[in-house]
Design a binder for these strands. Structure first.
Lengths: 184, 184
DNA sequence: ACGGTGAGAGAACGGTCGTTCTCTCGTGGG
DNA sequence: CCCACGAGAGAACGACCGTTCTCTCACCGT
């Protein structure tokens, strides 16, 4: 038998794939079971409910997002370049097969009204990203307001790319962000 | 008995309220029936399926969005002011009770992967708004690229306002848009 | 070698969904 | 006055959901 930690990871990764591709409510727990290859009994020993599993999936996505943003920023020198590197990260992501927008925005739209725990998880994720950007903006010696402006471009790029299937919006968002940084 | 046209309007308006507040899949057809006060049999005579009803709801929202944008622009003089008026429209909307983000983005995240018709309706709505903005941008004598930049701010403002419950992002998005118009 | 522990597979359960059907009853024409 | 029509209310239906339970069997210490 797999130990609890790796079983958890397997289930969360499988659920993430399915939830992201089809939406949460369109995926039954039987499908998660099949995708993960972990018995339903075990899944319910690891997660009290489907809602718990969704929260765990969002926690995974939060870590992946933070890692991706950090890795993209690694090659950049100035704070300004580290801010703009976020859009290079988006660019690569938008081009991935099966890109379907921001999992947090999608989950919020689907379940935010009925599940406070999921709504909170989404809010915390977005707040932590805004805080990260705020730190970079301050490092760059720019006014705080710029951070929110960049956040708006990042969010807008994600939803627009998802709906239009046009990965080029990442480049356009980057140019807009650069213009806003220059203007500030 | 209500004639077909008004019965249709009643059902679509009721479904819109419920779907927007709770998400589509969280609302059963019985709830639509209660909210509208129209018998289930009648609803299924007017709409072939729940999916048809969702498409009709999105069509209503498309018209309301176009009307709202046009009304906000009515008081503005220059093309530039008509572009920025979109954000005043957003500001008022974000402050409404029960604001829960863009119904199109929410529906797309929830059902876009499983219902091509809904995905198409969302895409068409977003494209028509981008085209509208593109026309204004050209009237203002600005490069086409600015239209997409403004679209990104509009989309970003909607999702961010929904998640953070902070209506002030409309003002911040307006300032960012003004800066981008100036820079172009 | 063997009995017990616990894991896996999937059936079962109660509930809800979208959709259709049945039954009742008010109404309008002859 | 009566009958046929159609509309309304809600039961019924089959499918599927999240969650739990049952049964089987492989594996372990002694």
């Amino acid at each position: 038998m797999l130990d609890d930690a790796t079983a958890r990871e397997t289930v969360v990764a499988a659920a993430d794939r399915l939830f992201y591709a089809r939406g949460v409510q369109s995926v039954g727990m039987d499908a998660v079971r099949s995708e993960a290859g972990v018995p339903l009994k075990r899944i319910y020993a690891l997660f009290r409910s489907k809602e718990d599993l969704v929260v765990a999936v969002l926690a995974l996505r939060t870590k992946q997002w933070a890692d991706g943003v950090e890795r993209a920023a690694a090659g950049a020198g100035s704070p300004r370049e580290r801010i703009l590197a976020v859009f290079d990260f988006l660019d690569a992501w938008f081009r991935e097969d099966g890109f379907r927008g921001c999992a947090f925005i999608n989950s919020f739209g689907e379940l935010g009204a009925t599940s406070p725990r999921i709504a909170d998880a989404v809010r915390e994720h977005k707040e932590s990203f805004r805080d990260h950007l705020l730190a970079l903006v301050r490092e760059a010696g720019l006014p705080d307001a710029v951070a929110v402006q960049v956040v708006l471009l990042v969010e807008g790029a994600q939803t627009t790319a998802a709906i239009t299937h046009d990965a080029d919006v990442a480049r356009q968002a980057r140019q807009a962000a650069a213009a806003l940084l220059d203007a500030a």
